[in-house]
């Protein structure tokens, strides 16, 4: 883990040693499965698909899922539609802010292969190159049932330990980082921040 080149990434988001709970690991695994908090970050056209889940008909709260505005507390990150580079920058920053056992759920076909916007200049064709995806739900905006199924899938993967998107992000950070820098150019965080300074 430590031979990786130091990219001067954001506050050692990668370089901390992981906390291994020996005794309570199975309990925590169960708890992680039974209480998933979703980051309120709805991109693209899928954002409107998410509220029905909270209504009386589907009610994802019975699985312990609760929308939570702050990324620090959240575990589940829903990418609900096409991803433009501008949104991808925010996604990367929010993803890196989330605390570690975090999972990514990609809705719809756009994050998988660009979907309807397959030939558009401004859509990220394959999200997986920049952010590790745990479960992808096909469909050009999957219906709530499909999303619920995807959530069940995530919970199963957590149960079995396969939902290791955050581990993959840590291990081959160079790959993800190179792709990101290729897309946005080196040191894109400062440049982006400076652009908005004038308006604040």
């Amino acid at each position: 883990m430590d031979e990786r080149k130091d990219f001067g990434e954001n506050d050692g988001v990668i370089h901390y040693e992981l906390q291994e709970f020996k005794l309570f690991e199975p309990l925590f695994k169960w708890a992680r499965k039974k209480s998933l908090w979703i980051v309120a970050f709805c991109t693209g056209c899928g954002g409107i698909e998410m509220p029905p889940l909270a209504t009386a008909r589907y009610d994802f709260e019975r699985f312990g899922i609760m929308p939570n505005p702050a990324p620090r507390m959240a575990d589940l990150f829903l990418i609900t539609g096409y991803v433009t580079p501008k949104t991808l920058k925010r996604i990367i920053i929010t993803y890196e802010m989330m605390q570690d056992p975090k999972y990514l759920l990609a809705h719809g076909s756009c994050p998988i292969n660009g979907g309807v916007y397959w030939d558009s200049y401004n859509v990220v064709k394959q999200l997986d190159k920049y952010i590790p995806i745990d479960v992808a739900i096909a469909g050009c905006m999957p219906r709530p049932e499909a999303v619920m199924d995807g959530i069940m899938e995530i919970m199963r993967k957590i149960e079995t330990g396969e939902a290791d998107g955050w581990k993959r992000y840590r291990e081959n950070y160079e790959y993800y980082r190179r792709n990101q820098d290729k897309l946005f150019g080196e040191g894109w965080r400062e440049k982006e921040a400076k652009r908005w300074l004038a308006w604040i």
Binding site: Q19, L27, A31, R32
Partner: peptide, 18 residues
């Protein structure tokens, strides 16, 4: 959610690796 949901949430938060 089940009545003991807050306990699960707290355990999950406590179990965070970072």
């Amino acid at each position: 959610p089940p009545i003991y949901q807050p306990i699960i949430d707290t355990l999950k938060l406590l179990g965070k690796k970072e």
